[in-house]
């Protein structure tokens, strides 16, 4: 009992530290990759190759004067960014970083995940449905028209794409026969699910971009019309919390894509240990996200909704039925 609590606390601390580091360097990664794609150099002044840039950004945001609209709802204005970030952090607890054997430290067998719950990835969907509140309440509490519109758009978008996101994973559950992420990765030992379930993987990736409010689906913070959307009225460290939540959500969407479709910790030929494969695949998915941001223009709002409800949702339903029929036919 005590051992379980202590081990879980240590793992939680490691996840917090790792996700914060990942956030810091993901911002740098994004800026450098974007710069290269636009034939620029990108940040390269702070530290060797600009590697200390995230620290400089952090210090700047920390020391900025905090200000907010005088008519804000003080409690919700503070609670919204905290909620967003807390939800983002919690989601990573279900991701198995490596396997299938446990890590042995000083004679203790330690698993590569915090929790391997039976409901598995459904827990992630429960958390994203709570994440909507963080963004929407930020828009409401700021008491500003840009914020409210941004918050509205964003929650409508997240709720719409959550359906396709969830349904795109159902084929994986059908093939793997489990919700547990560890079982799902183990089922991909020979074939990654991205190959037989390619349409589901593509739907997941598109819905994942919308779910994290990233370009080309960054309507909630469409700068040309909404200033900065739901976090227009936020500055300094409070803004940084939203920023962190967005990037950590990207990491989590990529991690779940890795686990569900790209074989998790399994790599070909047995070279490199499991965690490295996991990391490599997550970085590859993140690169696709950054690449898309540099390439595609923003969609119009009605187009975005049409894409979600009229294309992705029916496609993911069809994919789900097709997978079920094929699996049952094979089992016969």
């Amino acid at each position: 009992m005590t051992e379980v609590v202590v081990v879980t606390l240590i793992k939680t601390a490691i996840i917090l530290f790792a996700l914060l580091t990942a956030f810091a360097y993901l911002t740098l990664f994004e800026r450098v990759v974007q710069a290269r794609l636009q034939a620029r150099l990108g940040p390269n002044r702070v530290g060797p190759f600009g590697l200390l840039q995230p620290a400089a950004d952090g210090v700047k945001l920390l020391f900025k004067e905090t200000s907010g609209p005088a008519t804000r709802d003080r409690f919700l204005y503070l609670a919204a960014p905290v909620l967003s970030l807390a939800v983002a952090f919690t989601a990573f607890t279900i991701v198995p970083v490596s396997g299938p054997t446990d890590l042995v430290v000083l004679g203790h067998r330690i698993s590569w995940y915090v929790t391997n719950t039976n409901v598995g990835v459904l827990f992630y969907f429960a958390l994203t449905s709570l994440g909507v509140y963080g963004i929407f309440l930020a828009g409401y509490a700021s008491n500003s028209k840009y914020s409210l519109l941004g918050g509205l758009r964003s929650s409508a978008q997240m709720i719409s794409y959550e359906m396709s996101l969830g349904l795109s994973l159902v084929p994986v559950f059908i093939v793997a026969g489990s919700f547990r992420l560890v079982d799902i990765v183990n089922a991909q030992r020979t074939w990654w699910f991205a190959l037989p379930l390619l349409p589901a993987f593509i739907i997941y990736m598109i819905a994942g971009i919308a779910e994290t409010n990233r370009a080309p689906f960054d309507l909630p913070e469409a700068d040309t019309e909404l200033v900065a959307g739901y976090h227009t009225e936020y500055g300094g460290m409070k803004f940084a919390l939203f920023f962190m939540a967005e990037y950590i959500n990207m990491v989590i969407v990529s991690s779940i894509a890795t686990v569900m479709f790209l074989g998790g910790w399994w790599g070909p030929f047995g070279i490199l240990p499991g965690p490295w494969w996991f990391l490599l695949k997550v970085v590859a998915v993140l690169f696709v996200y950054v690449w898309l941001r540099a390439t595609l223009p923003r969609l119009r709002y009605d187009r975005l909704m049409q894409l979600g409800w009229k294309s992705l949702l029916p496609l993911s339903l069809a994919m789900m039925m097709a997978t079920a029929v094929v699996v049952v036919a094979v089992q016969r």
């Binding site: 459904l122 969907f125 449905s129 709570l130 959550e162």
Partner: peptide, 9 residues
């Protein structure tokens, strides 16, 4: 999970 997704979410 269902309670959170359906009712709060």
């Amino acid at each position: 999970v269902a309670q959170i997704i359906v009712y709060t979410g």
